[in-house]
Write a protein that binds this DNA or RNA. Structure first.
Lengths: 160, 160
DNA sequence: GATCAGGTGTTACGTTATAACATTAGCGTG
DNA sequence: CACGCTAATGTTATAACGTAACACCTGATC
């Protein structure tokens, strides 16, 4: 984590996080239904990025009933709108936001994705680094479409 | 381009570039066959990133005979090994290397991909920016798996 | 011209993702 | 409570991207 030791970084059980997610939705007038809650729980439990189809497997195996891919995609879309999960384009997988229990705003996250085990870290890049990057991009007439950058990485466990 | 005006940046016709690619392969003991040449020509002509399936369409339409997706993928794999094309994970498309006619080594390129029209710019990010990025990544126990970063962008033409 | 490797053809299938339409659940209003 | 509206989910089909496996051909070498 970027700032270990702060209150927002203390260990949170899946249950606690799900409660936060529920209030988050209620305050926005949306509903964290049972199935949405279960998809989010799957992502939280796995502690890594999962594909939509891996989540259908999770539901079948862990919850004892099937949740078809179409439904999972819709639920992931909802959770992403609620800022509870992030979609990772590079990995084509989805990951629970690591800041669900925090109430305050965060900088836009950058994602480090282990291309082997799909563990994900959300980091915040120094502002001046982002500025420098932006300058390089704008110098050739482009604009960053998203500031949620994704980086293919290897984590310590998977690196040889 | 990063350094407009240098010799390597002067306008090159597709034909000239293909000749460079041919000698490049010969010097490495590989063959730029007719079909490989045509796939590369398709990428050069389009001046943007194309998917493997778009390239099969190109061959069918422009060359008058079909080249199946499987073959295109194999050819793209070969061209990538030869450093003549780059595979863009974010866009799931392929783009001709913009430095085929240069003989000298280049820094690892970063790609700016217009997510609307798939025009691509290869830029080189300042070394100190890359260093700073590397530090952020290593601070959380990850390592960049590739230094060929890709950024979702909008080009001037597609930006509102 | 036999042999062998590299290149290509062909078929099948796996994975990710979305479109279109049917059905159900929750919720407010008369 | 019944009605009707909207959100949520179910169901089926299909598109787009990608790879595995095996057959066949071609071109270089002996």
């Amino acid at each position: 984590m970027a700032t270990p030791g702060t209150r927002e970084e203390v260990e949170q059980t899946t249950h606690t996080i799900l409660e936060s997610a529920k209030s988050h939705c209620e305050s926005r007038g949306t509903r964290l239904t049972e199935k949405r809650r279960q998809v989010l729980a799957g992502l939280l439990d796995s502690k890594r990025a999962l594909s939509a189809y891996e989540l259908t497997d999770y539901c079948r195996d862990e919850l004892g009933y099937p949740l078809q891919a179409m439904s999972v995609y819709r639920i992931l879309e909802f959770l992403e709108q609620e800022n509870l999960v992030h979609r990772l384009n590079l990995a084509k997988k989805y990951v629970a936001c690591s800041h669900i229990v925090c109430s305050h705003e965060h900088e836009l996250p950058q994602f480090l994705i282990c291309k082997s085990c799909f563990k994900v870290e959300e980091i915040t890049i120094e502002r001046k680094t982002m500025t420098s990057l932006n300058n390089s991009v704008e110098a050739v007439g482009f604009n960053l479409a998203s500031h949620q950058l994704e980086f293919d990485c290897l984590c310590v466990d998977c690196d040889d």
